[in-house]
Amino acid sequence: MTDSIHITRRGGQKSRLTLKAREMMEAWLFVSPTVIGFIIFFLGPLLAVAYYSLTEWNLLTQQATFVGLANFENALLENPDFWHVVRNSVIFALGLVPLNMALALTLALALSRPFRGVVFFRTVFFAPVVTSAIAWAIVWKFMLQGEGGFINQVLALVGISGPNWLREPNWAMAAVIITRVIKMVGLNMILYIAALQAIPRDYEEAARLEGASRRQIFSMITWPLLAPATLVIMVITTIGSFKVFDHIYQMTGGGPENGTLVLAFYIYQQGFKFFNVGYASTLAMIMFAIVMVLTLVQVALRRKGME
């Protein structure tokens, strides 16, 4: 097939249209694996989940009945668990995103210029990113045990009686957020470092010559120039915080007292533990909507801020 194109072009007799049509066909051939896979494993399932959300469907008995919006009513109006779960997810995101980004930016500012040891520090702060979330959660779960846990034993050495981290709902949420931040902050740090290094040094030099302080340089020059990177990082981190699953699964299993039961875990629980496929699909649709809205809001806010 490709040979014939070659011949046509050499001949140069055929019209330009045919050439264009061939180019188009070739292009679609190049993208066809991606497109076919995308339709089968992503677009189709996305449409399917929209339909499932309108059914009552038991995974075990495989019986499905169309129930309209009953699942949505149940989730939004009747089931108190749902709002508890949404609240947990929001708290998780509100805790994780600012903490992660502030820490990432601080580290990036400290590590964006070369100095002795910079590679060491970057390597260290990034190491948890390449580690599996399950392994990370396993280790922290041990270290956060009650009295016998390493963290509390160390705290005891300096006279602090640490909480039973993973058995108290609020402490458990805090523990899950903090350990997740430590796991993921390296990625954002690297993204910020890349963005910082893309800022021309002249700007800063010029500002310094005019007598601007470090703080002024940061707030007047660096921070505004980082805005596009900040937006990307914020979107990625927010979406990431809503889909956190393995970390919660391993560290708390949603407990204690449902204190860390977040949306992604709740979907898994309803669909695959209680076999409520329909209700779980409804939750998945709601999650989809939340993530989409959040992304659009962040993009819009940023655009407004830039004008």
């Binding site: 045990q145 009650g146 009295e147 016998g148 846990g149 039973n164 981290w165 993973l166 058995r167």
Partner: peptide, 10 residues
């Protein structure tokens, strides 16, 4: 009594 292993302990 603290005679049963409490939550969070091994």
């Amino acid at each position: 009594d603290k005679s049963i292993v409490p939550p969070g302990e091994q």
